[in-house]
């Protein structure tokens, strides 16, 4: 199993297949991330901060409400509108999600 693979140019050492995604996949992922990032950046400040705190950094509604000194209901509605905006933005940029 560990025998070298014989090719025309000589022997190649056998290697274990990598679990890493392919370069293409990586590129695609990076592009999507860039798009998402751009969409988030395009948001207004008050929407951006809730989406970053909730979806990227994973704080709870209660924590966000304390941090931003706003009611939990406000956090919810802002989050919904922020997500909606990001979704629209991504759809425009990528066509299909």
């Amino acid at each position: 199993m560990d025998d070298p693979i014989v090719t025309d140019d000589g022997n190649i050492k056998a290697e274990i297949a990598s679990n890493e995604s392919s370069i293409l996949e990586k590129l695609e992922k990076r592009e999507i991330q860039q798009t998402v990032q751009n969409c988030i950046n395009a948001l207004e400040n008050e929407f951006r901060e809730v989406i970053v705190l909730r979806d990227m950094q994973g704080f709870s509604y209660n924590e966000i409400s304390n941090m931003l000194k706003i009611a939990e209901g406000t956090v919810k509605s802002r989050l919904f509108r922020a997500r909606d905006a990001v979704r629209d933005c991504l759809k425009k940029a990528m066509g299909v999600l």
Partner: peptide
């Protein structure tokens, strides 16, 4: 709903800059 889920997924997948 599906789009929203995906959006959230995308956002969550963003690497910490």
């Amino acid at each position: 709903l599906a789009d929203l889920r995906k959006t959230i997924e995308h956002i969550k997948n963003i690497e910490e800059v």
